[in-house]
Design a protein around this nucleic acid. Structure first.
Lengths: 147, 147
DNA sequence: GTAATTTCTCAAGTTAACTTGAGATCAAGG
DNA sequence: CCTTGATCTCAAGTTAACTTGAGAAATTAC
């Protein structure tokens, strides 16, 4: 009766690559224990952790932020219902904000379709202030909508 | 009376870096003409082109797809109202799809908050099939929600 | 007409998020 | 017990989207 899941099992359960799971570990997203031989052993709750990561990534959140969210969960004990509820609630807020931003853009675009983008002054797409996205070096992560 | 905008002017107008605009050129997003001295000269419509790029990027679309959209516009002639309307309309569809995907995820998450993620079988976050995102080498661009 | 900007090209560096490969060890089935 | 498959570590490669730097030529400003 092996203690916990092997990394390959976790990969199968989540659909992630084994290499990705190890990579996430270097970013503090999962913190598996080790067995006698040095192999990683995961708890069942890690499946949910990684599923959460995948969902958040699909929304465009960077790993660093996801990791922060997850810091609210206990490392090796199974998280309580309250733990997950707290995180899920915050996540929901982020989703709502994102939906709101998209709807705003959509509404502006509606005006744009009407005008055919020919009246520059009033065109939403023309106004760069609406889409600020410079705040770091390297590739700007524009996947996150302006708050 | 200089013919067209210099790259620096375009940078000022759009808020993009000069280097970024040159980079976009290598990806076929803008195709400036050259003056006697070999300097790039842009048309006014390139402001809108680039603004469109920024908006689409904020939504998480990869440059390659944005470039494809823009191929529907004429290279050196000012686009007609019909040209832009076609693109804007398509863009709007993409936004709607994205909003729908987010709303679906939000609804699932609502159920998840209720259950505290403790009943694995029925938890939306637990079901990896909901979030498929493997289709290439290199970093998986998970910024795009599943269609 | 000269100094200060801008722009040009091209190569190389950067960040995020992983993957791939090499060489070695651990684990599990027959 | 032995072989096959899973893991381990660590370094290096990959993609997207840009930025930075170097050296040179074109523009603009005074």
């Amino acid at each position: 009766m092996p203690q916990g899941l092997a990394i390959g099992d976790l990969a199968d359960r989540t659909g992630l690559a084994v290499s990705a799971i190890r990579f996430y570990e270097t970013h503090g997203i999962v913190k598996p224990l080790r067995n006698k031989g040095g192999h990683r052993r995961y708890g069942r709750s890690d499946i949910r952790r990684l599923s959460f990561v995948m969902a958040a990534q699909a929304l465009g959140f960077p790993l660093s932020e996801i990791a922060e969210h997850l810091h609210a969960l206990p490392d090796h004990k199974a998280p309580t219902k309250a733990d997950w509820t707290r995180i899920s609630t915050q996540f929901r807020k982020d989703i709502d904000a994102r939906i709101a931003a998209l709807e705003e853009l959509r509404d502006k675009l509606d005006g744009c379709i009407g005008c055919g983008c020919l009246s520059l002054k009033s065109c939403a797409l023309y106004n760069p202030a609406d889409i600020k996205g410079k705040d770091g070096k390297g590739p700007r992560n524009l996947t996150r909508l302006p708050a």
